[in-house]
Amino acid sequence: MKHLLSIEDLTADQIHGLLELTDHMAEISSRPIPKVPALRGKNVVSLFFEDSTRTRTSFDTAAKRLSADTMNFSVSSSSVNKGESLRDTIETISAMGVDAFVVRHKSSGAPLQITQWTNASIVNAGDGWHQHPTQALLDCYTIRTALNRRDGFDGLRIAIVGDIKHSRVARSDVQAFAALGADVTLVAPPTLLPPALVNGNSPDWPVTVSHDLDSLLPDLDVLYLLRVQRERMDEALLPSLHEYSALYGLTAERAARLAPHALVMHPGPMNRGVEMVVDPGELPGSVILNQVTNGVAVRMAVLFSLLGSGNDLKETA
């Protein structure tokens, strides 16, 4: 594997392989000194054209636990603000000697485009509405661990609720969950669905579409809530956040109708009082902080798969 750009590029076996590798990384992370020399001498550059402190910190922590050198490059402090093109930025930093770029960009497809201007590996840390593959992997790892589903998600019922249309998390999760065998339902008002799903199901999307969260709740194994952005009202996609909460928000009443084993997940940052009306700390099924913890281990696995060799890990793990 040279790059990680999209879940679409991975087979189910590759996803399983990365999740197994994540088990090793989680074990390393649990040690008193959570650091191994596996990527010593490798230079990992975070290139964030869009702010995301949590994702950047997660990747940074992952790289440091593997002893890679890390460098941060953010738009606000860079030549991009001086009008430098994406190509020139990539070629310039590549010339310093880079093994992997971790790229966050507000434009869908930018990480793929970047691959033509550098020999370094590219990890997509979120591009536009398109993909956020490490989020999908950490979500899979979280479900796999919490529900003890090491062999796959066959028969698992997962609902993803919220702004699917603008969500790279939804696009990645749908592909990853479906690849592992889950039955995925997308729950949203039609205005927050991608055009292909506005009129119902599409052969391109291995999902069922629903507009009725309440009827699904008792049968779910995983309830995955997405962040709903306040600016969506300006585009006439929603009447009000209040109405969104009333129809699609996780209230205490709705939480009480979930099965006892059901997980509640959210990629963060949460909009309290909008999609998350209940205090997640009081939900027994909430694994939202586990997602954050697992994010580091999954990103260690991804960086190691791209930059390391199997021998290094065996020697050090």
């Binding site: 869908s108 497809g109 591009d127 536009g128 509405w129 398109h130 993909q131 790279r168 696009r171 991608p194 055009p195 292909a196 799903l197 599409s202 391109d204 999307w205």
Partner: peptide
């Protein structure tokens, strides 16, 4: 173009 392709690619569509 707004259709199945833009939905998959995560790009705003031109209907």
């Amino acid at each position: 173009h707004e259709g199945s392709c833009c939905s998959r690619l995560g790009l705003p569509g031109w209907p």
